[in-house]
Design a protein around this nucleic acid. Structure first.
Length: 361
DNA sequence: AAAATGCGCAACCGCAGGTGC
DNA sequence: AGCACCTGCGGTTGCGCATTT
């Protein structure tokens, strides 16, 4: 374009915040004469500002019909709808919001609404569910929990064999890694508790533990997956844990993971499918807690270390219940080095591929 | 209490479209 | 057709205040 910026010819003009005196001059001039030629206006009004600055000040601040204050819910929804329709056409959006300026709407969008949408898992530009940034990680985390609840690993029968358990452990390791990468974004998975579904008092053989004899006939055993690994629920004492996995999770995150409702826990039979209702979503999942007909028993203060060859329990003293990132990283290295991890990845990738629908809601 | 950090918002800047000569 | 001018728009900046460390 063959022209110089308007302010080139306004060398020496004042910039920055406007003084009350300047506002008064501008307002008085426009009230008396109206506005038309912004370039000549400053001179005529006795202002040492460029025309552009005067226009901006008037349009965004001094205009008598400017509406100030918080945006109402109605205004917000209008903005969202119009933005979805028009994109960043702030002036056009402003046309539909009397008293609001394009600048104000733009600022409000950038400082408030963008965040809101992001927190809702919506891409503020496309208005579609987010598919970039952290969402894959979040999705993975959710899929993980859903898949575990659905028993989608290990030949569709999660607790049927050791391979499945190893898969579970590996996936839990993945989850821990994700938590390290994005500690705020990845919630704890704390979605099932064997004790709460287990009506069986009999000791059973632990299918993967050399110390398989259950020392307690009626222990408060629970299989928990949390930040520090699969650990027994040592605190619940048969109080069913229906902890929503979003507890402790900031309110700006994605919808909740699968949790198990009281009813389903009471009525579910091990190894069978059940329907759980969580947060308005109905999901089908297999109740965990058993390996086939066997109850998983874990000592009340032990934890499971992830090692494909020696999947075993760590006993108190060597327990890793509060393992830090370095422990996880060590496990992670082993995991990556391990050839058998391939199948785990395969299951995982199959599960998370677009063609599958692991999360049935 | 002071420094660091985060946040909101007014204002600036550069570009593009429209218009007249 | 080409140029100059004006206006409007959207992205970005920077200041001041609030909050956190």
């Amino acid at each position: 374009m063959g022209r110089s910026p308007c302010c080139d010819q306004d060398k020496g003009v004042k910039k920055g915040p406007w003084l009350q005196e300047e506002d008064d001059k501008l307002t008085a001039y426009i009230n008396d004469n109206g506005y038309g030629n912004w370039r000549s206006l400053p001179k005529l009004a006795g202002l040492n500002r460029c025309g552009k600055s005067c226009r901006l000040r008037w349009m965004n601040y001094l205009r008598p019909d400017i509406r100030r204050g918080n945006f109402s819910d109605e205004e917000e929804s209008t903005i969202v709808r119009l933005h979805a329709l028009l994109g960043n056409k702030w002036s056009k959006i402003a046309c539909h919001l009397p008293g609001r300026t394009d600048n104000e709407i733009k600022n409000y969008w950038n400082t408030h609404m963008r965040k809101k949408l992001l927190q809702m898992g919506i891409d503020p530009m496309t208005h579609e569910p987010r598919t970039n940034d952290l969402s894959p990680i979040l999705d993975v985390s959710q899929m993980l929990a859903a898949a575990i609840n659905n028993g989608q690993f290990g030949n569709n029968n999660l607790f049927n064999n050791n391979t499945a358990l190893e898969d579970l452990l590996k996936l839990q390791l993945i989850h821990k890694m994700l938590q390290i990468i994005t500690p705020k974004a990845i919630p704890n998975i704390n979605c099932f508790n064997a004790s709460s579904v287990n009506p069986k008092p009999e000791p059973v053989v632990n299918s993967f533990n050399t110390n398989s004899v259950n020392p307690k006939p009626n222990p408060p055993v629970g299989l928990f997956i949390n930040q520090s690994g699969i650990t027994p629920d040592a605190t619940s004492d048969f109080i069913p844990s229906y902890e929503n996995v979003w507890d402790g999770f900031e309110d700006n995150q994605l919808p909740g993971l699968v949790t198990v409702s009281q009813d389903s826990l009471n009525t579910a039979k091990p190894g069978t499918s059940t329907t759980t209702e969580v947060n308005d979503h109905t999901r089908t999942g297999m109740m965990p807690g058993y390996y086939g007909d066997q109850l998983l028993e874990i000592p009340s203060s032990g934890s499971i270390s992830v090692s494909p060859e020696t999947t075993s329990l760590n006993h108190p003293g060597t327990a890793q219940q509060s393992s830090g990132s370095s422990d996880v990283l060590e496990d992670w290295e082993k995991f990556l080095d391990d050839e058998t991890s391939d199948s785990c990845w395969k299951s995982f990738l199959d599960l998370t591929s677009p063609t599958s629908s692991p999360v049935p809601w």
